[in-house]
Design a protein around this nucleic acid. Structure first.
Length: 317
DNA sequence: ATCCAGGCTCCTG
DNA sequence: CAGGAGCATGGA
């Protein structure tokens, strides 16, 4: 087993990142196990297991990064460290968030509650985009069910000690699927089937280089992604934010953000996309953080309501 | 049953 | 260009 250390810019709240992963339905491939983040990753063309744990505090953060599996080289470890920094957004200097909080007390409450939290990215760009398509216009719990079915049916698995980890299917494999035969039986709609397969074909044929797109300025990346069928502005922005680490990009058309902006900023109704964008001016530079924080709060509210309902029904047999 | 959910495409006016 | 209908599916 090989290990390397990563030193995030403080403040850095690893425990909140794990809490996000625990409540977020988007976490299907990544797992939280004994206060560690664990997920399969491809490094140097080989499948390995990345395990990240915290050896520090919020003000003096330190991450231990391990690669399990085949003997890892020094280069592999360096890549694992770089990936870890990206996944946990460790290099953002979030000091300026305090100023944002200062002139927006409503968002400021969240900045204080989630002190040191950064967006937790989905490690793989292709997986991010597929997940974004699955999440379009259906409830997110069902979207996660679709993702699990896709992974179970067409992905692989890898053993990591006591854990069996699911591996996301490659674009090459998904490119060969047939909607009728393969995806409709696992509850995909015709649209989602078509969009996912078209995306997989574009990537595997080399027409879409996600690694390259992830390095582009936001506007260029969005313009490229929205060329694909089924990928509109929301999906592209979601992908930039959750997969590419653009900290100032948020999907303003998002239903959850319309809800939260409408509720928290006194509209008394669902905000429009334009109103969400206007509200986002307050978070300039940090819109992606804001969206991530608001979603986290919504997800925690939802979980609290479920726990309460579950508790009540459990108490009344 | 009805409405909604971390939208997209295509068609109107 | 803005607005809206249709699509498609399970969960609350």
């Amino acid at each position: 087993m090989a290990t390397i250390s990563v030193r995030p810019a403080p403040p850095f709240a690893f425990d909140l990142a794990l809490e996000y992963l625990r409540v977020s339905p988007s976490a299907v491939i990544e797992r939280v196990h004994e206060d560690c983040y664990v997920r399969p990753v491809r490094i140097g063309g080989r499948l390995m297991i990345l395990r990240v744990s915290s050896a520090g505090s919020v003000e003096h953060p330190l991450l231990d990064v391990e690669l399990l599996g085949d003997e890892a080289s020094g280069d592999d470890l360096g890549e694992a460290a770089a990936l870890t920094r990206r996944i946990f957004s460790t290099d953002d200097d979030i000091g300026p968030l305090r100023e944002v909080a200062g002139h927006d007390p409503i968002f400021g409450r969240l900045v204080r509650r989630y002190y040191g939290l950064r967006p937790v990215l989905i490690a793989d760009p292709f997986e991010t985009l597929v997940w974004a398509i699955l999440g379009q216009q259906i409830n997110i719990t069902f979207a996660a069910k679709l993702k699990r079915a896709l992974v179970e049916r067409f992905g692989g698995a890898i053993e990591a000690g006591p854990l069996t980890l699911a591996v996301f299917p490659t674009p090459e494999l998904l490119a060969t699927l047939d909607h009728e035969r393969d995806l409709l039986p696992i509850q995909f709609s015709r649209q989602k089937s078509r969009y996912v397969i078209a995306l997989a074909q574009a990537v595997s044929a080399g027409r879409l280089d996600l690694a390259a797109v992830s390095q582009l300025p936001a506007d260029d990346a969005i313009a490229q992604l929205t060329q694909l069928p089924g990928i509109g502005r929301w999906t592209a922005e979601y992908c930039l934010m959750r997969g590419f680490g653009h900290r100032d990009v948020m999907p303003a058309g998002d239903g959850g953000l319309k809800q939260i902006v409408g509720r928290e900023y006194g509209f008394g109704r669902l905000a429009t996309e334009g109103e969400v964008r206007a509200a986002g001016e307050r978070w300039a530079g940090w819109r992606g953080y804001a969206a991530f924080y608001w979603w986290f709060q919504l997800q925690q509210e939802l979980q609290a309501r479920r726990a309460k309902a579950g508790w009540r029904t459990a108490a009344q047999p």
